[in-house]
Design a protein around this nucleic acid. Sequence first.
DNA 1: CGGAATCCAAGAAGATACTG
DNA 2: CAGTATCTTCTTGGATTCCG
Lengths: 102, 102
Amino acid sequence: MSEQDVTEVFEKCLGCRYMVALLQKIHDGVRRPGQLERAVDGMTAKVLSERLKRLVEHGVVEKTSYPEIPPRVEYTLTSFGQRLLEIIDEVDELHRRARIKP
Amino acid sequence: MSEQDVTEVFEKCLGCRYMVALLQKIHDGVRRPGQLERAVDGMTAKVLSERLKRLVEHGVVEKTSYPEIPPRVEYTLTSFGQRLLEIIDEVDELHRRARIKP
DNA sequence: CGGAATCCAAGAAGATACTG
DNA sequence: CAGTATCTTCTTGGATTCCG
């Protein structure tokens, strides 16, 4: 893992394209890169692996490699990642309310 | 205000450079553009006004103009913005813990 | 002072090809 | 299947200038 302050988390792990959708899919149980690529609309394999790598570096997701042929890899949320997802939902809720009853 | 889903909030109001620092300064009571420009290290006036405009559009901050000479303007957090700040602090806390005791 | 417009440099993302 | 590397394109941010 890495880093100093929250800013990093928002800028690198939440604020870039596809990230929220990607995290939601992982949270929903989609664990393998191939599936994630198909699950997140518009995201290419290249961008996906950049995102996953970054999420691992920041301690948001965890990677497990199975030494098989063909290779199999799975990504799951860490406990920090899970809390992050709860917070995303919370912001979603707040934002929704703010739009309706401002 | 505007927008569809949370993704927008993270991408446009939290995930870009200076945003978290800017919001924290506003939360700390720095309300005028000139002061904010000086308070947030490295941020230029141009970027500042882009950010403020965006925050207003997304209902995170509120703008008040006083018709004086010279003109005076103030920005404050909306209730949604205040909740957002609390959430930023929460993520800060979580992230800090995750680094120490993973 | 606050803010918009312009121009330019730096970074993010799309498309493809290639390795283990 | 997963992941890296390269190349091109688009978006973001930095520096400067002008207007109300």
